[in-house]
Design a protein around this nucleic acid. Sequence first.
DNA 1: TAAAATATGTCAACAAGGCTGACATAAATT
DNA 2: AATTTATGTCAGCCTTGTTGACATATTTTA
Lengths: 177, 177
Amino acid sequence: MTDRSGTNASPIRTAITNEDGVDLSIIELLFFAYRDFTSDPDQILAEYGFGRAHHRVLHFVNRMPGLTVAELLDVLKITKQSLARVLKQLIDTGHIVQVQGPRDRRQRELYPTEKGRSLALALARPQSRRISAALGNSSMAEREGIERFLKAMVNPELRAQIDNLPGTTSGKSHGDE
Amino acid sequence: MTDRSGTNASPIRTAITNEDGVDLSIIELLFFAYRDFTSDPDQILAEYGFGRAHHRVLHFVNRMPGLTVAELLDVLKITKQSLARVLKQLIDTGHIVQVQGPRDRRQRELYPTEKGRSLALALARPQSRRISAALGNSSMAEREGIERFLKAMVNPELRAQIDNLPGTTSGKSHGDE
DNA sequence: TAAAATATGTCAACAAGGCTGACATAAATT
DNA sequence: AATTTATGTCAGCCTTGTTGACATATTTTA
């Protein structure tokens, strides 16, 4: 009541719990898991003067070689200018090359070089090791449960992007089955 | 061979696949899932002029009421200055209050106000709904498999932080069992 | 063919949220 | 009394996101 603004500014001393109807366990697990998952490549990136933005670009260019700038923007959901900065650096350092589009010569197809391929793999390796360790001796069914859950966490409109990636368990060899 | 730097700068036209010994499926699923998971609260935060940094602070103050500034820094793994900026705003807007530590009067215990509690729940709700939808009609065993996996993704030293949170399935009522 | 739309690049400017290092204060510890 | 600790604060830097404007080459459309 000693409060001018209508709200009560006194401290609440009890914690929010799962009983508040909110799935705090998984919310927090996702936060901690993702934080540590992304920390793996950071040391490697630092050696190159790169950041996570470079990592993401390099990753998807290696996963979808020949994709255009517009397609990359659509996958990453960032703006042209944000991409331009890091893409320029990756091109200048010889990790990515641009090739004029064969049908539409306005387009620039993006491909990794050997150097870019090698760095992409080096960055993926510690993350993959962490995943493998976390799966431990999980059964195939458990692994599928985890993948199904993660995929269902993605906005439905964007699940198509995942299916279009090559060699994903839930969408192999883009388009066939 | 038309290359001065020793590396081959020609475009690689094949995609990296899971066969390269790297678990790309889950790497990418984590990226997409986390991206959309964190996008949920963003609209709400924007109404308050807050960002994700505010969200994280508010969340953990609500989950561990009375924690000190140093403890919060340890959970978030950011620096004092990064915290100071957003914490000040949350205090100025009446979402969090500081209480002088009872034993050590140098410490400032952080508590949510009613307003802060309410916002924290509002932010958690859409995330919780997304998780619930993603779990669908998963069995209890599947849910446990997912939680076990996510927890195992966290650096071992830091798993203690998770166990110290109240009401987490894998570590209830801090300390007893 | 001329006009309009498209793909890309680039410039300037801004904001959020990380970072570092330095320094001040109060309180606790030695 | 001296030192250490917990916190706050100042100045300044970096990365990576944003917007809006504009230029260029190329394709599509009228």
